[in-house]
Simulated scan of single mutants.
Amino acid sequence: MEPIRVVLVDDHHLVLAGLRMLLEPLPHLAVVGTAATAAAAYAAVATHRPDVVLLDINLPDQSGLEVCRRLTTDYPGLKVLALTTLHEKSYVTRMMQEGAAGYLLKNASPEELAEAIARVHAGKKYFSDDVQELLLRPAPAAAAGPLITRREREVLLLIADGLTSHDIATRLFLSALTVETHRRNLLTKFGVGNTAALIRLAAQQQLL
């Protein structure tokens, strides 16, 4: 039986080295590539054609949400397993919407990590116990948020994905000036002064 081919994507080289050290001795797994950026991840997947990608959400050049969407769109048979420290329901649900097959926290044991890889490779979903508990937890009553237009919501979601105004303009076929106007309007409507506060408040109000 051929081993499961895995590509590791994380922006910390020590994490990549540690994951490789944990997984390489396992006979049913083969680490075929590593990447510390989204760009490197796309190249590694194109070169090595893995079965499973272990993907961190925090990457320096692009959000892991966008990376997951692109990989699962370009490679329909590929299984993406989120491996992250982000323990928030909004990130779990967004990763699932973008095509991820599972969500695992970085406090997982080596045995659980290996099991998760095998499960998603077999076509099943995998969530760590902490994540399952998070998904089952009733959502708090959302605070009344500002009224935003459909286009503003599209821009908001892409801002949360880590896209620049230029990238958003390209994606939505708008001018960069129009996107900047939407961005300023969102900051004003939410009553915040920067993008980080905008994303945090939008997530609290379950708009992401």
Rank of each mutant, 00 (worst) to 15 (best):
4 I>H: 02
5 R>N: 02
7 V>E: 00
8 L>C: 03
10 D>I: 08
12 H>V: 06
15 V>W: 01
17 A>L: 11
18 G>H: 06
18 G>N: 03
19 L>V: 01
20 R>E: 15
20 R>G: 15
21 M>Q: 14
21 M>L: 13
22 L>M: 12
23 L>C: 06
25 P>E: 09
27 P>R: 13
27 P>L: 07
28 H>E: 15
29 L>H: 03
30 A>P: 00
31 V>G: 04
32 V>C: 15
32 V>M: 10
35 A>V: 10
39 A>C: 03
40 A>V: 04
40 A>H: 07
41 A>D: 08
42 Y>H: 14
45 V>L: 11
45 V>S: 09
47 T>F: 00
49 R>E: 14
50 P>R: 10
51 D>K: 12
52 V>S: 09
53 V>P: 10
54 L>R: 02
54 L>W: 06
57 I>Y: 03
57 I>G: 03
63 S>R: 08
64 G>L: 09
66 E>N: 01
66 E>I: 06
68 C>Y: 06
69 R>G: 12
72 T>E: 09
73 T>V: 02
73 T>Y: 00
74 D>F: 01
74 D>W: 07
75 Y>K: 01
77 G>R: 14
79 K>N: 11
81 L>H: 08
81 L>K: 11
84 T>W: 02
84 T>E: 05
84 T>L: 07
85 T>D: 05
86 L>V: 14
92 V>E: 06
92 V>Y: 07
95 M>K: 04
99 G>S: 06
102 G>D: 08
103 Y>D: 04
103 Y>Q: 05
103 Y>C: 04
104 L>H: 10
105 L>R: 08
105 L>W: 03
106 K>I: 10
108 A>F: 01
110 P>N: 05
111 E>L: 09
115 E>A: 14
117 I>G: 12
118 A>R: 14
118 A>W: 01
119 R>N: 01
124 K>W: 01
125 K>M: 11
127 F>T: 07
127 F>N: 06
132 Q>R: 15
132 Q>Y: 03
134 L>V: 06
135 L>P: 01
135 L>Q: 08
136 L>P: 00
137 R>D: 07
137 R>P: 00
139 A>M: 09
139 A>R: 13
140 P>Y: 05
141 A>D: 12
144 A>K: 15
144 A>W: 02
148 I>N: 05
151 R>S: 08
152 E>G: 10
156 L>E: 02
156 L>N: 01
159 I>A: 01
159 I>F: 13
163 L>E: 06
167 D>H: 12
168 I>K: 03
169 A>P: 09
171 R>H: 14
171 R>A: 13
174 L>A: 12
174 L>Y: 06
174 L>H: 05
175 S>P: 10
175 S>Y: 04
176 A>E: 15
178 T>I: 02
180 E>K: 15
182 H>E: 14
183 R>C: 03
184 R>K: 15
185 N>E: 12
186 L>G: 10
191 G>F: 08
191 G>P: 13
193 G>N: 13
194 N>I: 02
196 A>N: 11
196 A>M: 10
196 A>K: 15
198 L>K: 11
198 L>C: 11
201 L>D: 09
202 A>S: 15
202 A>G: 12
